[in-house]
Amino acid sequence: MREGMNGPVLEVGELVKDYVTRDAKLRQRVARAVDGISFAVQPGETFAIVGESGSGKSTVGRVLLKLTDATEGNVHLLGEEILGMPERRFRALRRHIQMVFQDPLAAFDPRATIRSSLREFAGFGGGRSRAEQNRAIDQAIRDVGLPPEISWRRPSQVSGGQLQRLSIARSLLVKPQLLFLDEPTSSLDVSIRGQIVNLLVEIQDREGIAYLLVAHDLRVVYVMAHRVAVMYLGQFVEIGTRDQIYERARHPYTRGLLEAALLDEPARAGDPVRLTGEISEEQVRKPGCRLTPRCPFAEARCDEPQQLRPTGDGRLVRCWKAVEVPVSIGLHGSGSSSEGR
């Protein structure tokens, strides 16, 4: 059924998400978690969003699955606008977009057997006999490298790594076009992490599913992603191919993140960047670049509003210095691409 559509699986335009909270004096406070982001995910690709906690990256996925309401913007899933769509009508479309949760133990009903959790997905939309459902469940579990008998246990009776495999198997039961992976490895041990990442890559190669990966682990993102968006305080600050981001990052925030991740490879162009201070939501209310209090290169002009600008090699960067005078922020033109002069 994929032949029919050549467009992107998912197209997001100017998405905004506000959270309204009340402070101690019961005054309304609006926190803008996602502030006008746009991107598209192509069939079979992995689009990753990276950033620190508080950047709003997890919120994006939850809005796309309509698990929480968006404030503004539009989202097209397989060409259909879904944000304005009533829940009842969207329910049928849910089979195309699924989610893998960070903590597999929280993602399964603690009282139900794993099998009954899987059965809910196997029976999506009705129309399958119980025997067909059973066969589909067993096959899905085998596909993630586990014996089907494991599904008769309860979530607390299997290990975290096994449960994450089962969570993946569960979401694949409805044959989605897009899988939102919300920190799929960060609750797992180091030695298990690789197993899950490799499994996800294998599944993508085999089934051609698109992934929207949200993670703060830059090693995992490096292995899985085709394109990467770097998010800071609700905005994308840099979007590019994986190699553009990892080897020739432009934005000081991207470079600071990579520096802090203690990666062995790949070798990166430009001087190392160390960010000071921490993420602060106060910055969202200011018009200029939100990184200024933490950025070693900040100057007066950074207080003007910053736009995502193309650099000539197909990427977008939200930093005037990185686009206009890269040398001034320690990028010595050692990268292979033109420095966007």
């Binding site: 698990l67 089979r95 989610m99 399964f108 009903d109 603690p110 569960r170």
Partner: peptide, 10 residues
Amino acid sequence: DFVLAARCAG
């Protein structure tokens, strides 16, 4: 999460 998962199952 498991309630959200059930919503994902339609």
